[in-house]
């Protein structure tokens, strides 16, 4: 007898509520409920396939490989994006299209905006001089920073949960595009103007560092730490966009004073704007801004020591 026999306590069914919406004819989405027999190790995809195949429902859903390679089957399950082929079916599921994307029909969403933006980011290696032979001298160490980024299958789960992308006209490219860009930017072979693309086109400094993208990534890419922050550092070196100037001002204030003063930082970054004045009028009376401390007092006694320690690490890559 094999030690790998089936579990004895299989649940007998899965209850699923399926999002249905055909923009050509429907004014609002509706939900259809189905009960599907549970099968061993059942995935979300098995449930969708059962509804299509055994119940002959013609709902729209997209999948190609069903093996965690194509990244086209991500859907929202009980409100959270899941790769349908990869994740286990839950016993009660509301299945909806990824949020924040244009619905083509039912669970199928448009990938067009993502692809169009990717095409503008010089999405393949840009080289000053192409290496004609093979293999080019390269080492695993040189390529190590991009190792996890190469796992990306562009399922767009991260794009669907990014809170900045949910804001209209944010100008932000979103995590999946930044992963693609960062893979190139950190490739020792690449000579593209990645700082400009990251800073101005992808607007990397609009990332709020909320880590929602990492939470939903089916291939566990450390998106913030290994894709986004290296890009920010690249842009910082070039120093062209407001985000980079903000980081520079932040460091300057800390070094000069030994601690951060928010009012001084705001003044340095944005200057004296109407909004800043409004905010100051609100905060000064509450003691939230101490004008004396901000503009008269010198730094903390240890500021010089702190500054020196920091400086020894600033340039280290």
């Amino acid at each position: 007898m094999s030690p790998f026999s089936k579990q004895t306590t299989e649940p007998d069914k899965v209850r699923v509520r399926l999002y249905r919406f055909d923009p050509a004819v429907d004014r609002t989405p509706r939900y259809e409920a189905y009960e599907v027999p549970h099968t061993p190790r059942m995935r979300i995809m098995d449930v969708l396939n059962y509804v299509h195949e055994n119940m002959a429902v013609d709902f729209g859903y997209r999948w190609l490989c069903s093996a965690k390679k194509c990244g086209t089957c991500a859907v929202n399950v009980n409100g959270s994006p899941k790769l349908a082929c990869w994740e286990e079916a839950e016993l009660e599921m509301t299945i909806e299209p990824l949020s924040g994307m244009q619905v083509i029909r039912d669970l199928v969403t448009s990938r067009d905006a993502f692809e169009a933006l990717l095409a503008t980011l010089s999405p393949t290696l840009v080289r000053k001089a192409e290496y004609r032979g093979f293999p080019e001298p390269l080492t695993a160490i040189q390529l190590a920073p991009t190792a996890h980024l190469r796992d990306c299958i562009q399922c767009l789960a991260c794009q669907s949960v990014c809170p900045v992308l949910k804001q209209p006209d944010s100008g932000f490219a979103g995590p999946a595009l930044l992963v693609a860009l960062s893979e190139l930017a950190q490739d020792p072979r690449d000579g593209g103007d990645r700082a400009r693309l990251a800073g101005e086109v992808a607007q990397v400094f609009k990332c709020v560092s909320c880590y929602e993208c990492e939470r939903v990534c089916p291939v566990d890419i450390p998106i913030v730490g290994e894709a986004i922050e290296p890009l920010k550092r690249l842009v910082y070196q070039a120093g062209v966009v407001p985000g980079a100037r903000h980081a520079r001002a932040f460091l300057d204030v800390v070094k000069a004073r030994g601690y951060l003063n928010a009012a001084v930082l705001a003044l340095k970054t944005k200057g004296l704007t109407l909004n800043a004045l409004r905010l100051a009028l609100r905060l000064v009376p509450r003691g939230k801004i101490d004008l004396g401390k901000a503009f008269l007092k010198r730094g903390a006694p240890g500021a010089k020591v702190i500054s020196k320690t920091y400086e020894s690490s600033e340039e280290v890559k």
């Binding site: 400094f205 560092s209 922050e229 920010k232 550092r233 910082y236 985000g243 980079a244 903000h246 980081a247 520079r248 932040f250 460091l251 800390v254 030994g258 601690y259 951060l260 903390a300 006694p301 240890g302 500021a303 020591v305 702190i306 320690t309 920091y310 020894s312 690490s313 600033e314 340039e315 280290v316 890559k317």
Partner: peptide, 20 residues
């Protein structure tokens, strides 16, 4: 005189600065 953890800014400048 602890200085600063750098919020999200030190990380955007240099990883070593953030760690230090």
């Amino acid at each position: 005189n602890p200085g600063c953890t750098g919020a999200r800014e030190f990380r955007a400048i240099s990883e070593q600065l953030h760690l230090t």
